[in-house]
Design a protein around this nucleic acid. Structure first.
Lengths: 218, 218, 218, 218
DNA sequence: CATGAATGAGAATTCATTCAT
DNA sequence: GATGAATGAATTCTCATTCAT
C-alpha cells in the first residue's frame, strides 16, 4: 500500500506529551466536532486565521475555553486534525490501492484516489497542507509534523522501490519519484484550495498518466 | 522562458493599495535590508514566527517602528519579499533556460537551475514557499499571492504548450504537467528547508530525467 | 496553654457564610480526603498553584466538581485546611506544653514541640504558612485569616503576660515577645519548606535557649 | 554590615534570563512607575490579586500591554519589585548600621532601622514579604527568590559569627539567631501589613532589647 | 529620517463554579 | 451522592500599527 496513516494508528496510545484518549462518548463527540470545525476553518481561512475563537464560532461553541477544555493545547488539536485527515485519507485510498494487482495499477490508484478524495472531502487535504506547512521551527509538534510529512513520502518510496526490484518499473530514484508524486498532488490540492475550478478527476487521470510514463520500463 | 518574475517587473509600481515608490537611496537600502532579514526569518522560523519584532532584530534594527515606517503594512513587506525572491530566481534561472536551444533542454534547465538556485540561495525559495502558503482567505493580499502562484504555473504551462504545438513534446495536458513540475520542485524545496540532507543537484538531474520521460514523444 | 485551635473548636459551626455541617460519614471522609490533598498541594507547590484541578488530581478525584460539591467555595476549603492544621498542631503541642510545671518549661516545650511537629507532619505547617500569607485584602475570608494569625500570637502573649505577672519571667513586652517567637518558628518552617536541610530538633532547642535567655529574669 | 542588597547590585547586569537594562530615561521612569504601583497593589491586596490589570490601573496606565512592553514577564516585574525594595532597604538601613562601632550596636541598629523603614515606607516590606512567600515551586524565578531569602539570613548570620569570634557576643548558633531575627521582624511587618495599629519604633526598640539579651555574653 | 513609547485588539489558557444527568 | 461537561470571566502575553519628538 502506498499510503497509510501513521498518526491514526496511535489514537488509543498514551505516549505523546499531550492528548489523553477520550474516555466518554460525549467527549469524543465534542472533540470530533471541534476537529471538524478546525479543518473547515484552516481550509477556508488558512492556518494563521485558525484561532480558537474562529474555530469555536464555526463549531457553534460559546467559548474558546471549551476547546482548551477538550484539548491539551493547540498542538494537540492540530495533531488531531492531522490524524483525522490521515484517517479519512487512509480509509478512502487504501482499499482502492489494494484492489489493484499490479504496481502500476497501485500507483495510478494512489494518485487518482488521492485526487478523488479531494473531491469527496474538499476541506481535508487543504487543511492538511496548511498544517504541515507549519512544520518549521524548533517546537516538538512542528518536528512531529515534519516527520509525518517525511513518512508520507518515505512509504510511497519504499513501495516504489519494492516494485522496482520486482522488475515492475523502470530505472529511477524511488525517493525522488515519491517526492515528485507527493508534490504534484499537493500542487493540485493547493490550487483547488485557492479556488481554482479544476476537474480533479480528470486531473488525477492526467497525473497518473504522467507518472505512468515516468516510471515505465524503457 | 519558463519562469519570470511578474511582481519584480513593476517595481516602480502598479498603484496597489500600499507601497509608495522608494525615492531615495537610503530608503531603498533600508527596504532591501529589511526584506533580506524577513526572508531569513521566514525561511528559518516559518511565516508564523516572522513578526516585525523578529525581523527587526535580525535586521539589526532597534525598533519595529522602522519597518512600519518603510512599509505600508505586513502585506506590503510580504509582497516585497515575494518580489525579491522572484527577482533573484529570474536572474538565476532565465539565462540558464534561454541558453538552451530545445524545449526539452529548457525544461531540464528550468528544473535543474531551480534546484541549483536552492543551493545558491538556501533561504529564498523556502521563504517564498512559506509566504505563498498564506494565500488562503479573502483578504486582497492573499488573493494576490494566489494569483502569483497561479501565474508561476501558467507561464510554464504556456511554454510547454507552445513547445508541444511545435511538436517538441508528446501528448499531455501542459497545465497539469506544469503543476506537477512546480509541485515536485517545491516538494524538494520543502524537504530541504525542513533540514533534510539532500544533494539538490543530483535531485535536480533526477527530476529533470523524470519529467523528460514524462514529456517525451512516445 | 500557649497555642490552641480556635477554628477547629467550632467545627459544628459559627454560621459563617459557607460550610454546611457535614451530615454523613462519607461526607466527612470525602472532606477530610480533599483537605489532606489540599494541604499536600499547598505545601509542595505553594498556594498559587493549589487550584481545584491540582487538588482533585492529588486526591485521586476525577473532577473538580467534587470539591465544589463538598465545599461552599475556595474560602471554605481553606478555612478547613487551617482548621485541620490547627487541630493537628493543638493535639501535638498541647499535651507537651501542659506537661511542664514552669512557665519557662512551657515556653521551651512550645517552641520545641512546634518544630518537632514540623518533623512529624512536614506538610502541615508549611501549608498553614502559605494560607495565612494570603490574609491580605478586603474579602471577609482574608480578614478571617488575619484574625486567626493574630489570635495565634495573642494567646501566646497572654500566657507570657500571666507568667510574667507571676514573677516567672523578666521584664519585656509579652506581645512583642510572642510575635518574635511566632516569627522565629515560622522562619524555620519557611526555610524547611523551601527545601533547606535543617535538623529541626536541634534548631528547636537552640531557639528555645534563645528565648529562654530573652525572657529570663535579669 | 548586617544587611545589604544583593539584587540591587546587578541592576546594570545582563546575565539574567529576562530584564534588559533600561536604556532610556523614559523607559526607566515607566519601569519605576510600574514597580511602584506593583508594590502598592501587592502590599494592599496581596500577591494573588496583583495582576497586570490591577497594577496598570493603579499606575494610571491604559492597558496591561504597557507592562508587558516594559517587562519581560511577571517574573521580571517581581524581580524588579524585590530589587527596588532591597535598594530602598539597603539605602535606609546600611548607613544606620555602619554608624555603629560595636556589634551589639549594629545588631540594634539593624533591627530598629528595619522597623523604622516599615514606618517610612509602609508598603515596601509587606510587598517584599508577599513576593518572597511565593518562593515555592520549580520555576526558576521562585528558586531565585528562595535564594534571595536565604541570602538575607546568611549575611546576618555571617556578621553575627564574625562578631562572636571577636568575642563581642555570647554563645549561640549564629545562623539560628539570624533566622530568629529575620522571622521576628517579618512577623511585625506581617502584622502591620494586616492593619494592626502598632508603634513600630517602640516595637523595634523592644525587639532590639530582646535580641540584645539573647546575644549578650552570659 | 529615525526612534522609542504607546496602544488596543486579540491570542491561548486557566480558573472556580454550575448544572443536567 | 457523584460525575463530567460546560461556562465565562480573567490572566499573561504578543502583535501590527501609530505618534510625538
Amino acid at each position: 500500500m502506498l499510503m497509510q496513516a501513521k498518526i491514526s494508528a496511535d489514537e488509543q496510545d498514551s505516549g505523546g506529551p499531550a492528548a489523553a484518549p477520550p474516555r466518554t462518548f460525549t467527549e469524543a463527540a465534542r472533540r470530533a466536532q471541534i476537529v471538524d470545525a478546525a479543518i473547515e476553518v484552516i481550509a477556508d481561512e488558512g492556518y494563521a486565521k485558525a484561532t480558537y475563537a474562529r474555530i469555536a464560532r464555526r463549531a457553534g461553541l460559546s467559548s474558546t475555553g471549551m476547546i482548551s477544555y477538550h484539548f491539551a493545547g493547540k498542538a494537540d488539536l492540530m495533531r488531531e486534525v492531522v490524524a483525522e485527515v490521515m484517517r479519512v485519507a487512509d480509509g478512502y485510498m487504501r482499499p482502492r490501492i489494494e484492489a489493484q494487482p499490479t504496481a502500476a495499477g497501485r500507483l495510478r490508484a494512489h494518485i487518482e484516489s488521492n485526487l478523488e478524495l479531494l473531491g469527496a472531502h474538499p476541506k481535508h487535504l487543504p487543511a492538511l497542507l496548511q498544517v504541515l506547512a507549519q512544520a518549521r521551527g524548533d517546537e516538538p509538534w512542528q518536528q512531529e509534523f515534519a516527520a509525518e510529512m517525511g513518512g508520507l513520502v518515505d512509504r510511497v518510496a519504499e513501495a516504489l522501490a519494492r516494485a522496482q526490484e520486482a522488475g515492475e518499473f523502470g530505472d529511477f530514484d524511488p525517493w525522488v519519484m515519491a517526492m515528485a508524486i507527493r508534490g504534484a498532488v499537493d500542487a493540485v490540492v493547493s490550487r483547488v484550495a485557492g479556488g481554482a475550478a479544476i476537474d480533479v478527476a480528470a486531473c488525477g487521470r492526467e497525473l497518473a498518466d504522467l507518472f505512468d510514463r515516468a516510471t515505465r520500463k524503457a
